[in-house]
């Protein structure tokens, strides 16, 4: 560093100080670059990343037509064996309030909000996404253990926020397939 003026007597110690400092700065830069590379590697190699695509929807027409009409909400077994879950959040509940899905199955959760900003978080997992009105959130998930999971709204959505808790029921694969036979959209209702 070229800031010191007294080159005559202080220059040797300044030299040492600058060298030590440069070493530390190099280490710090390496740490930072490593972190970014690690994230890039995990993102590309394992395809773990936050929601990549932007999809929009008109919240004032959600209930009238399209993907999020009431009769289309819930879980559906696709022909390839995967499951798609469609849900909406509104002040202050989720529809369906209790989602039913099979264990050990790739699941796509597609959800949006009918009014204000909400969030979906499934406790004990890293399923966690915002529901922003006007936009569709998509999360890929897979449960390795059957059982009941709590699914609170994780974003302030006005005065009833503390009461907005949903549930996820993860059941046996065969059970689910059996219930899906009749077609339609599944939720915990009727179980």
């Amino acid at each position: 560093m070229s800031v010191e003026g007294a080159h005559s007597n202080g220059s040797a110690s300044a030299e040492v100080a600058a060298r030590v400092e440069r070493r530390w700065a190099t280490i710090a830069v390496i740490i930072v670059v490593m972190m970014a590379l690690l994230a890039a590697f995990a993102g590309i190699h394992r395809a773990t990343m936050p929601q990549p695509r932007v999809e929009t929807t008109d919240p004032s027409r959600l209930h009238l037509s399209g993907e999020f009409v009431e009769s289309n909400l819930g879980s559906v077994l696709e022909t390839n064996g995967n499951v798609t879950v469609r849900a909406i959040g509104q002040q202050y509940s989720f529809t369906p309030a209790c989602i039913v899905v099979p264990v050990d199955t790739p699941i796509t959760l597609r959800a949006t909000s009918a009014d204000v900003v909400h969030g979906i978080l499934i406790q004990g997992t890293n399923v966690n996404t915002m529901l922003v009105p006007g936009y569709i959130s998509e999360q890929l998930m897979r449960f390795t253990k059957s059982g009941d999971y709590l699914m609170p709204c994780q974003e302030f959505c006005s005065f009833g926020h503390e009461g907005m808790w949903g549930k996820v029921k993860v059941i046996d694969k065969a059970d689910f397939a059996n219930r899906a036979k009749g077609g339609g959209r599944l939720s915990c209702v009727g179980q």
């Binding site: 994230a39 890039a40 993102g43 990343m49 936050p50 929601q51 990549p52 695509r53 932007v54 999809e55 949006t112 969030g119 966690n128 996404t129 915002m130 529901l131 922003v132 006007g134 936009y135 569709i136 959130s137 998509e138």
Partner: peptide
């Protein structure tokens, strides 16, 4: 906004 649906993966990264 990592968990937000209105921003794409590129800018998040």
């Amino acid at each position: 906004t990592f968990a937000d649906p209105q921003v794409g993966a590129g800018f998040k990264f």
